[in-house]
Design a protein around this nucleic acid. Sequence first.
DNA 1: AGATTTTAATGCGAAATGGTACAAAATATG
DNA 2: CATATTTTGTACCATTTCGCATTAAAATCT
Lengths: 211, 211
Amino acid sequence: MVQNMKVEKKRGRPRAFDTKAAIGKARDVFWDRGYAAASLDNLSAATNLNRPSLYGAFGDKEDLYLDTLEGYRQDGMDVLTEALDPSLPLRDNIARVYAGALEIYLHGDTAARGCFLIGTATAEAVQHERVREVLGRSLNDFDGEIEKRMRLAVERGELPEGADPQTFARLASAVMHSLAVRARAGDSREVLEAIARSGVELICGSALGRG
Amino acid sequence: MVQNMKVEKKRGRPRAFDTKAAIGKARDVFWDRGYAAASLDNLSAATNLNRPSLYGAFGDKEDLYLDTLEGYRQDGMDVLTEALDPSLPLRDNIARVYAGALEIYLHGDTAARGCFLIGTATAEAVQHERVREVLGRSLNDFDGEIEKRMRLAVERGELPEGADPQTFARLASAVMHSLAVRARAGDSREVLEAIARSGVELICGSALGRG
DNA sequence: AGATTTTAATGCGAAATGGTACAAAATATG
DNA sequence: CATATTTTGTACCATTTCGCATTAAAATCT
């Protein structure tokens, strides 16, 4: 049932490329240049697909971009849920979330890439409603995933009794947003890790949650 | 001495436009569309300057963009220092900083604009070194201004004795960065204000700083 | 094998883009 | 007034852009 989804033999000529891989390559282009500055030639070169193939497989440039955004959101959620393993203390969870984020953000050829969503989708969000929708939904999904863990933390006493899980989740996200921006602005790993540590401290800190 | 800077009567035909106003109009265009997607036609139409005039007055598109960024940074610093009036309690200061930020971020015709720097310069930061430099410097300047107030707060006992002003400043900035992103992602004023309030609470909160 | 269906490759084209040449206009200086 | 200097407006250019039409190629179905 899992593998049946693609077993229906398609009629015509089979694709000579892997869709997921192509989206990944396209994502790298958008990540470095931003959506608007990424040309179809750039994308075509990076994916080894000529423009008509790109167009046939993904639709126009905006459609392709939305696909890369969705893929990133999904990957991000996977990393996040793994980092939030509830068998670990809350403090470790949040630290792992930030560490995982920095692992992604600090990659880059010429300069650190930061967060793909925050680094590129924000720029288009005002004009392109669909991009704004994906961006907003992604941020909310991240918040929601963290909020689940925060709820557990309140139950377990890792956070003060009256603490609002949603509020704590949003503040935990806020630190991550800042890391995303600062990484792309060129801040060093040392600075970013220091911010991450102090964020963990502030949110899960002994002063508040005696976590 | 202040007004002498421009009193040297220039020789040729005088400009028929106000430079500052033109930069402001251009900034609005970049703010909505992002740097790459803003065409010289867009900028020309918004400023009522034809392309050669734009080019003559500001240089090429990137030069003009950098001018708008610098102007925004300067304006932002002014708003920030005003909000951080040291005769007020730290809690009020930070609340005013966020309120001032939201006042700017929530403007927009089709959708909220968010922060001009974070919303548009991050997208270009990887490829354009000069943009990355301005972005990084701006973030640091904001941090520095807040840090000064935090230092004072430690001296006054508004924050715990051992607290590191730089750390607290960066965390205060982090909440603002999150507001910047979320505003552009379409979050409502209510949500943003709630985040701002909880950010103030967490950073200046009684549990920690008994401010 | 022949028909059908889907993908791949070449190349085109209309429009938009960033930038500039050039001449007219407007002002200060001599 | 004449000249030098700067700005303005029209028109233009070379390039890039996105998107597609068309044709060739490769697989499946009958």
